[in-house]
């Protein structure tokens, strides 16, 4: 039986006085791809930030393999193999691609870049280019590449395909499938065809509340999920 890489129970979170998440409960098994869909402002990104340690929940529990994550620092959680890839595609723009990867390597102790360069051969060509000069797609590749160093057990990926060309989206889809062979993935996404194609389970959020948990394979379709967007 697969272990529970992430278990969130009764999570409530807020920004100051403004409540954003209401009693959210989700769970993710090892090597499972979990999609998280919902309209803008549904609380999807806040959910990822709470798990990654950037937002302290008001109440509720977040655990990974039985270890409580609430109250831990963001870098401590990253050190446990739970990597967050934010939506904004902001890389360290004054550093080269190589230096960006080195930062990932040094933090995780994993200096084997072969898997990264296999997933994203383009990074090999761009290795000495300043990250600030990369396109949106290339930045996303770099951020994912940097995050998978150290073989994380859980990747939290926030809107990875936003603003990217269809060919890159298709490439990322293949990469996520491949990554799911070694890690669990929680992907916040509004691109329904893409997320439905790779997910084992979909959580739909609306106004900070969990509206649906879709686990049946035949229901994980863009048509079925459309009403939640």
């Amino acid at each position: 039986m697969s272990s529970q890489v992430l278990n969130v129970e009764g999570l409530n979170a807020s920004y100051g006085e403004s409540r954003v998440l209401f009693d959210i409960s989700i769970n993710v098994l090892d090597k499972q791809v979990v999609g998280c869909v919902g309209r803008n402002g549904a609380g999807k990104s806040t959910l990822l930030k709470s798990i990654a340690g950037f937002l302290r929940p008001r109440s509720g529990t977040i655990s990974s393999d039985g270890v409580d994550l609430v109250g831990r620092t963001a870098f401590g959680i990253a050190g446990m193999g739970i990597k967050y890839i934010p939506q904004d595609k902001k890389v360290f723009s004054d550093l080269t691609v190589r230096e960006n990867l080195e930062l990932g390597s040094y933090a995780s102790g994993d200096y084997n870049w072969e898997p990264v360069l296999e997933f994203f051969p383009k990074l090999k060509v761009l290795i000495d280019r300043k990250a600030g000069y990369l396109s949106g797609g290339e930045r996303q590749m770099l951020m994912i590449g940097r995050a998978i160093l150290g073989k994380p057990k859980l990747l939290l990926i926030d809107e990875p395909t936003e603003g990217l060309a269809p060919s890159i989206v298709s490439h990322l889809k293949d990469v996520f499938r491949e990554l799911s062979k070694s890690a669990a993935l929680v992907i916040v996404e509004q691109n329904l065809p893409m997320i439905c194609a790779i997910s084992d389970k979909i959580y739909a959020l609306n106004e900070g509340r969990l509206m649906a948990e879709i686990t049946e394979r035949d229901k994980i379709t863009p048509e079925f999920c459309e009403p939640y967007l």
């Binding site: 340690g53 950037f54 963001a74 990253a78 902001k90 890389v91 930062l103 995780s108 995050a147």
Partner: peptide, 9 residues
Amino acid sequence: DKVRFLGYN
């Protein structure tokens, strides 16, 4: 923030 995402203090 991104430095912390990578696991640095």
